[in-house]
């Protein structure tokens, strides 16, 4: 069931902007309000706008659901793995082991008015990025399952 002309034209134009804004919110989680869950939810909205505007059957052919489930699990496994790596440094679970090291993301976030440096914050940007991936894939799969249940419900019991 396709929606009207206004909705389909909006759904053609808007998703790149929504996706870009969502990725911006994920990446700048340690400097501005936002972070993993919020940015992931915004990015999922960009995809869901296309699903709502066009019929479910067209979009479901384009998205491979088992791949999304795999990416969701992998994202979460990497987040827990980053927490585990703190054990190698002799510290407790989920310690910030990247601060004060010459690796990327190695310095503290600067205090006071400044334009904001992405290369700071320790393990926080890592958590943000991979939780963002996980939330994006997870919310898309939830909505796709609900829509597939609706299609089946109309056909048979």
């Amino acid at each position: 069931m396709r929606m009207s002309k206004i909705v389909t034209i909006t759904a053609d134009l808007l998703p790149p902007f929504i996706l870009a804004f969502g990725l911006y919110v994920i990446a700048h989680g340690h400097l501005t309000p936002g972070g993993g869950f919020q940015g992931g939810a915004v990015t999922a909205t960009g995809l869901l706008l296309m699903i709502v505007a066009y019929s479910y059957k067209d979009i479901a052919k384009a998205i491979r659901q088992d791949r999304f489930k795999l990416y969701e699990s992998l994202g979460l496994i990497i987040v827990i793995g980053v927490g585990y790596i703190a054990f190698l440094y002799g510290a407790t679970f989920f310690t910030n082991w990247l601060v004060n090291t010459p690796l990327p993301f190695g310095t503290y976030v600067p205090f006071g008015p400044n334009p904001g440096d992405l290369n700071t914050g320790g393990t926080m940007p890592l958590y943000n990025i991979f939780v963002g991936v996980e939330v994006f894939c997870g919310l898309t799969i939830v909505v796709l399952y609900m829509l597939s249940g609706l299609e089946e419900g109309e056909g048979s019991s």
Partner: peptide, 20 residues
């Protein structure tokens, strides 16, 4: 020495590796 963290960390990692 890390057993209070491991009792949470092992099921957490195992739950998501089960799906893989």
């Amino acid at each position: 020495y890390n057993s209070p963290a491991l009792i949470i960390a092992i099921p957490l990692l195992a739950a998501f590796l089960t799906l893989v």
